[in-house]
């Protein structure tokens, strides 16, 4: 069975009981509440470090979206520039997400051989490679 990424005990207490009646028709109200519940839960549970990770990831998404919209508006003329700029953000996002997964103590079972420090070192290695390729590609 694939492991869960969060312990099951904590969220059960904070989740409102609305999902019991949830169905696709009663959607939007419940969905909004669900989302709100998820957000509150997130604020409480997640450690500081992980929040730092998440904020960096959010920042990357914003930068990626900005670049993409610019591309849609003005065009992708130096295509390699567009690709390298966009891939830099996407790659960095993915690497950071991997770091998040690896440093999450709930996943310790999966990553027995990788300590968080090792994960971070790998992360730096991967990111440096990514930056090198992007700068080389954009010329």
């Amino acid at each position: 069975m694939p492991p869960k990424s969060r312990p099951a005990a904590a969220p059960a207490s904070s989740t409102p009981s609305k999902p019991a009646t949830s169905s696709k028709t009663g959607g939007s109200m419940d969905a909004q509440d669900i989302v709100l519940g998820v957000w509150n839960n997130y604020q409480k549970i997640t450690p500081q470090r992980v929040k730092l990770l998440d904020s960096f990831m959010g920042f990357l998404v914003v930068v990626a979206a900005l670049q993409f919209f610019y591309c849609l508006l003005v065009g992708n003329f130096p295509f390699n520039a567009f690709l390298s700029g966009f891939s830099a953000t996407v790659g960095q996002f993915v690497l950071t997400a991997s770091l998040r997964i690896q440093t999450n103590p709930d996943n310790k079972k999966e990553f027995e051989s990788t300590s968080p420090e090792r994960a971070f070192a790998d992360y730096v290695f991967g990111s440096l490679l990514l930056h090198f390729f992007c700068v080389n590609f954009i010329n």
């Binding site: 492991p3 390699n80 891939s87 790659g91 690497l95 990553f111 390729f133 590609f137």
Partner: peptide, 25 residues
């Protein structure tokens, strides 16, 4: 097969992001 795991995510995404950039050089 239902064998999704975080290891798969980490390995595949890091390979794809870096590998595709490397191949475009």
């Amino acid at each position: 097969m239902g064998r999704y795991s975080p290891r798969l995510y980490v390995s595949y995404t890091s390979w794809y992001a870096l590998g595709t950039l490397a191949s475009m050089q």
